[in-house]
Design a protein around this nucleic acid. Structure first.
Length: 374
DNA sequence: AACAGTATCAACCGCACCAAT
DNA sequence: GATTGGTGCGGTTGATACTGT
């Protein structure tokens, strides 16, 4: 037996609410309280579906609704919570007083999601967009081997992968090899070496050579033991990274701290796939070297990330934190510029700021979802 | 000024869950 | 255990505003 409609749709009004309807609803709820939404419209003299009344009240008329632009703190909180909770808008809204799930959902879809995409971060997984990496890698390696043709470069998709993010992902992955600290330090050393080599040789070196250059580094990555899994703070999170399923359905909300505005990177999906010992799409470090880029990542910043992920005494890294309070930016700290994400007043400034941290160009041949238009 | 394309967001829809019967 | 009503949730739609040509 199918569920009956919440109310008879005959003669019921749809569409935007008028001021008069709003006032009727407010008056009724002030007198009788809300609830019993099915019978409420009739009692209140409204020709509306009860569901519509509830939505109007909870999303718009409720007295504790905070309207207007999202603050930077709110935006950062949304990003961090979404990283943990996924599209659980009501759960996110519960931790943002005065904001509704609908408002947050809209803001995510129209602002944050696009910004993350522009930054080369997958808004679903909150990880660097390794799908693009894989695509570029496959195209480049196969085509180069067969024809000496660098198709991605020809297509203009070489620079789509932010080298900073790729480097960061590599570093983070490496840092999970907890019981092989020598490997990590070896990697650090190796990585610095590679950075220099890449810097010096990238423009003139053949891709095959670059593969060789990074092969030892890659080997270090791939031998990281799978079993070294650190339990997450929310230990009941079971995630299958890069799957199409919602990633955080196992999060029990009541077990999360009520004020989750500084959630640790320890619990991010990036961490989760690392903890699972899985490596999405089996990307290899050497693949990075095939990318055409001009390395600009600040080694201090990268090392700080590595330390923060290895050293329990250094608290937390998250993309949200990266965006709002970068400890190191491409602009030297001692420069006169004191711009941070948090004091960018406009959307453009936020974008510009993020772009400066995460230099990244989306070629026209890719649409917003990263689909290549041939 | 007019038009087209894009962005925004309030509102709707369908489904799922839960409690009461 | 099955049915029903109430409610909440996430995805989608469509009207409107904005922007570029």
């Amino acid at each position: 037996m199918g569920k009956v409609p919440c109310c008879d749709k005959e003669g019921l009004k749809k569409g935007p609410w008028t001021a008069e309807e709003d006032q009727k609803l407010i008056d009724y709820i002030q007198k009788h309280g809300h609830g019993r939404w099915r019978t409420l419209p009739k009692n209140a003299g409204l020709k509306r579906c009860g569901k519509s009344c509830r939505l109007r009240w909870t999303n718009y008329l409720r007295p504790d609704i905070k309207r207007g632009r999202f603050s930077f703190e709110e935006e950062e909180t949304i990003i961090q919570l979404h990283c943990v909770l996924g599209n659980k808008w009501s759960a996110i809204a519960a931790r943002l007083p005065g904001r509704t799930d609908n408002e947050i959902k809209n803001y995510w879809n129209t602002h944050i999601r696009k910004r993350l995409l522009r930054m080369g971060i997958d808004p679903v997984t909150h990880t660097p967009r390794l799908d693009l990496l894989e695509l570029t890698s496959v195209l480049n390696s196969s085509l180069y081997n067969s024809s000496q043709l660098n198709l991605p470069s020809l297509l203009g998709i070489g620079p789509i992968l932010n080298p900073n993010m790729l480097s960061l992902a590599t570093a983070l992955f490496s840092s999970q090899c907890r019981n092989t600290e020598n490997i990590t330090s070896q990697y650090l050393h190796q990585h610095q070496l590679d950075q220099n080599l890449v810097q010096n040789q990238l423009q003139s070196t053949q891709p095959a050579q670059l593969n060789t250059i990074n092969s030892s580094s890659q080997a270090n990555q791939l031998q990281c033991p799978v079993q070294e899994i650190q339990p997450c703070a929310t230990s009941n999170i079971i995630s299958t990274p890069f799957s199409s399923e919602p990633q955080f359905t196992h999060v029990k909300m009541e077990q999360l701290p009520p004020n989750l505005t500084n959630f640790s990177y320890q619990n991010s999906p990036t961490k989760l796939w690392q903890n699972n010992g899985e490596h999405p799409n089996d990307f290899s470090v050497s693949d990075y070297s095939l990318l055409k880029f001009d390395p600009v990542i600040d080694p201090q910043f990268e090392n700080q990330i590595l330390r923060s992920n290895n050293d329990e005494s250094i608290p937390n890294f998250s993309f949200g934190t990266l965006m709002s309070t970068p400890s190191t930016s491409p602009t030297p700290l001692n420069s006169s510029s004191t711009t941070t994400y948090a004091n960018c007043s406009t959307e453009d400034e936020r974008d510009s700021y993020c772009s400066n941290i995460l230099l990244y160009d989306m070629p026209n041949s890719l649409n917003a979802s990263g689909v290549l238009h041939m």
